[in-house]
Design a protein around this nucleic acid. Sequence first.
DNA 1: TGACAATTCAAACACCTGTTTCAAACTCGC
DNA 2: GCGAGTTTGAAACAGGTGTTTGAATTGTCA
Lengths: 247, 247
Amino acid sequence: MKASPVPDPAVGAAAAATRRALLDAAADVFAARGFYNATVRDICRQAGANVAAVNYHFGDKESLYSAVLSELSARAQQRFPSDGGLAPDATARQRLAAFIRSLLQRVLSEELSARHGRIMAREMVEPTKALNRLVREFIQPQANQLRDILRDLLPSATDPETSRLCGLSVVGQILFYAHCRPVLQRLEPVGTFDVLELDQLSHHITEFSLAALRDIGGRTSAAPPASPRSRKPRSPSPKATRRTARH
Amino acid sequence: MKASPVPDPAVGAAAAATRRALLDAAADVFAARGFYNATVRDICRQAGANVAAVNYHFGDKESLYSAVLSELSARAQQRFPSDGGLAPDATARQRLAAFIRSLLQRVLSEELSARHGRIMAREMVEPTKALNRLVREFIQPQANQLRDILRDLLPSATDPETSRLCGLSVVGQILFYAHCRPVLQRLEPVGTFDVLELDQLSHHITEFSLAALRDIGGRTSAAPPASPRSRKPRSPSPKATRRTARH
DNA sequence: TGACAATTCAAACACCTGTTTCAAACTCGC
DNA sequence: GCGAGTTTGAAACAGGTGTTTGAATTGTCA
């Protein structure tokens, strides 16, 4: 909770190797056990460093975690950029396909999934202080990108609420495989469930989503959200159905 | 890890109240903090019981967790049965709508979400020993149910792989809201994001999925999964693309 | 090379964890 | 009302946690 020397990375010379080893080991251990259940002793053992190394080089466990998160996210973003290296004049269809594929890669790729994907999945269920920055720097830009793609893909008359829900439907299909893998593995007899084949998965989600978007775009969301078998009458105010409780 | 007396629930008389209080408090604390970070001291304090109560009544922390999980799942299943109380001759469309709605309810309903939904979300990211039973008893039946609905909804020529992926797409859209709520809350300016309005959400996911299923059913999955911008050549065998590695 | 700072190390600290102990307090059939 | 059996309670136990300490070691630059 309090800061040790924390030398600026430029000053340290050979000790930078220890810093690196700590970052690598921490990525592994945090991904495997989550922030709270990862122990600095495990991290240091795996890094071949002394227990005090974490506090010396990073101040405390939480700062180390934050550093790991930043590095993993940046690396995933760089390795699988969410524009998929597409030409700027690509069609909306192509851009959606590239978006889906790169997000799937970032989340499932074996080289990263055991670290970035798993850590992100944990952050979403059990957020630490690092989530705020993560959302601001990495998730928000992707959300904007998807919003722009959908704007091009849906008729301009589509109301923003519908468009946003469509975006969530697309992302939900993808992140499902990141979050529910333990369940998926248990649901199917061993070996028959290799749904994680990227090409097949990416193709399916793209086609599934495009089909839905075509249809929803066609209806231009004229139909009000008259829910099936809903007993409670719709609230009179058109937009402010939200609960006022601060939560 | 080892068993104390663990009296059979029938024998205990007034002490059953303590058992109940422990179960209730444990549901709260486990849902809020997860299995590993929940402490028996917190649970006992909230239950107004002594620290030794957990070990006396349940043997150990893990057995208490297992008992909580069983009770919450059974209650959620009973409160929001996944057939939605539908007539047996309901159309596949109706059954899909009911399935989506009830799963959303089980996962988002305020009365349950803070417990059942959150605990399930955690189980999926950080499984405990209890997940195996949970999948077998509660998730597998729902998976079968969805499979049957899709079988009726898609042309009989649809290959099982496509059909299964469609099921995962449907479920993914739903569980997204359970798993990513911390992110969703941070993505939208406060107050404007009440996407958790059940009626609207349930309606959207149903329409989105039905549209996609219509389209995919129409194409009868004749198109091979020729992935866009895939560099590696497709494997020759038409069906067994799956990796043989046991993983 | 010598001196000074940066870095490592073993040990300890203070605290928290699940679990156990065993005496005290209850219950309930008789 | 008694006494055996059940249930509680305060305290302790054994082990693990993040962090701190201060001496020993290493590295670096005059």
